[in-house]
Amino acid sequence: MNIQKIIVGAAVSAVMLNVMIVPAFAAGKAAPKTTGGVGYTAGGLQRYAEFNAIETSNTCSYADVTGTYVIAFKLDPDTVTTFPHDAFLTQTGSSVGGNGGYLAGALTYSFEWLIDTGTVTGNTINLSMHYTVGAVGTTMTMVGTIAPDGSLSGTWTDNFGGTRTGTWASTSGNATVLAGCTGKGTFHYSDINGDWYYANVQYVNVDGTDAYFAGLVTSASQPSWIGNWVQVAVYDGGEPAYLVDSIWGIFTDSNTAKYNVANKVQPNGEFVITSGNLQVH
């Protein structure tokens, strides 16, 4: 989805872990930023974007839980005995899938389960699954926290012979921490039809001549746009902008916006710059 779809009020599209790390910029060193004001066309409509996005510090990171884990389950009220399961997780955006089984490392599992739904939101992981072997008909939910080192832990509940509860923790395998950075600034959109919106930039990631930023739409000519996040990527190819610079953008949700900025994702659909200039510096 692109800024063209932003303008026609496309639905918000459907990740990640926030951790504090050492600030990136020493005293007196200019913070990386991108600034500009460019005219461009999308969907046959002339549009204009003006922005000032400043990377403030490397204070946010995000986790992808894709990988192979050993997860030790404990059944309440026993706080000693563990039941190690293999777990094979995949993550796309904020959605998590996968499968697993007991006993970890066994060639054939006596109990196997398949994830039906899973999400990562902030530093929280939620999984719902059902057993396919050994306890067919049993469903289980897991809620946990992703630690800054990528380890996972939390609580679980299932309906095997009645309601059971317990705790779980990864003993092998770690989520991958993906660096990003916080930021500040503003983004203003307008078009020839008289529509407009303002966004408060909160996440910025500058990498050489490329910059990625995202902000929350706080006011707009179309009420349905307010509350969306706009995520933008720009490339500074020099002068003149309309020949060598590039800009991309989408309306999305906060988790996807933060994830895309952290991972330097260019939204689909590059726009044709017709006037103005942008800089990454």
Rank of each mutant, 00 (worst) to 15 (best):
Q4Y: 02
K5G: 04
I7N: 09
V8N: 14
G9A: 12
V12L: 12
A14T: 10
A14M: 02
N18Y: 10
I21C: 05
A31M: 13
K33V: 05
T35I: 11
G36A: 08
V38A: 03
G39A: 12
Q46D: 15
A49R: 02
I54K: 13
T56S: 12
S61E: 08
Y62I: 13
A63E: 01
D64K: 04
G67C: 08
Y69R: 02
A72Q: 12
K74L: 10
D76P: 00
V80P: 01
V80E: 14
T81S: 14
T81D: 10
P84Q: 04
F88S: 10
G93E: 07
S94E: 10
A106H: 06
L107S: 15
L114Q: 15
L114P: 01
D116W: 03
T117W: 13
T117D: 10
V120W: 09
N123F: 08
I125D: 07
L127F: 08
G134R: 03
G137R: 07
T141S: 10
I146H: 03
A147H: 14
A147L: 15
P148W: 05
P148F: 10
D149T: 13
G154L: 09
W156G: 05
T157S: 15
T171P: 07
T171N: 04
G173Y: 07
T176S: 14
A179C: 08
A179D: 12
K184C: 09
Y189M: 12
D191P: 04
N200P: 04
V201C: 08
Y203W: 15
N205Q: 14
D207M: 06
D207K: 12
T209Y: 02
D210W: 06
D210M: 10
D210C: 07
Y212L: 05
F213D: 00
P223F: 02
P223T: 05
N228V: 00
Y235A: 06
G238Y: 14
P240A: 04
P240F: 05
S246I: 00
S246G: 07
I250Y: 00
F251W: 08
V261C: 06
V261T: 05
K264V: 01
V265I: 15
E270F: 00
I273W: 02
I273N: 03
T274S: 14
S275E: 07
N277F: 11
Q279N: 10
